[in-house]
Design a protein around this nucleic acid. Structure first.
Lengths: 121, 121
DNA sequence: ATACTATATGGAGTGTACTCCAAGTCAAGA
DNA sequence: TCTTGACTTGGAGTACACTCCATATAGTAT
């Protein structure tokens, strides 16, 4: 797959895809003899994973570290698991915070619906 | 309340509190005759609201617009409500995305726990 | 009155994550 | 073969949300 196809498939700009590869957020993508990127299943899998993690707000730095550990082989399995668990905990608490904010927003909207916002902020 | 007290109370730096006021994220804070900020209940309420909304990832621009509408008085009640509803929808979909990512992360961690990461990314 | 700490303003600087650009190479159709 | 559009790299630029700094003034304790 060309970079344009991957870009369309995952709705990530080609610039961002190249940027992700350059900084090590995804491992090097296979190339044709002339140097043009030719995304295979594996590379697409990485792109999809990173799209998902970034959408969740996981920091690029943590993801770069994960990829770096992955590329070092099986002796990093435990470290990778620890990293993922840490990110899961962070994500869980972000979701909790956001749910609390959502409830606050809902209450505020309710006040507007009841025409009670003359004294509130 | 002084800016230092508000800063401690809400765990927001004094610089950020001044920044929020400067850009209109909160309405002007009352001052002493000599120009020093003296936060009252209302100002604290705004600070607390914005801390909550920012923690949820609501864009500063949307919040500035909300405050601007608020300051224009009661003829903006409907516009404010619409704005809040829009932000609620955005927040809801972000939470949904994050929950999906969380599940993906959990499955990945499970694979690590089962020692099945020799073939996965 | 002096010293010291807090607060004020305007403006510059920082970190994160892209996003764009210039200059050059590659590939597919007429 | 020529043209046109896609692809390459390295590096600069942008957007957002702070964060820091210099300089000046204010408030408090001795």
């Amino acid at each position: 797959m060309t970079i344009a196809e991957v870009s369309r498939k995952y709705e990530i700009s080609a610039d961002t895809l190249r940027y992700y590869e350059r900084i090590g957020l995804i491992p090097p993508v296979p190339r044709t003899r002339s140097g043009i990127r030719d995304y295979d299943e594996t590379s697409c899998g990485w792109v999809e994973l990173m799209k998902c993690m970034r959408a969740a707000g996981v920091q690029i730095e943590a993801l770069i570290e994960y990829v770096a550990l992955y590329r070092q082989g099986n002796q990093t399995l435990e470290a990778r698991k620890q990293l993922l668990m840490r990110q899961r905990d962070l994500l869980t608490s972000r979701i909790t915070d956001m749910q609390a904010s959502l409830e606050r927003l809902d209450r505020k909207i309710q006040l507007y619906e009841q025409g009670k916002m003359y004294v509130e902020e």
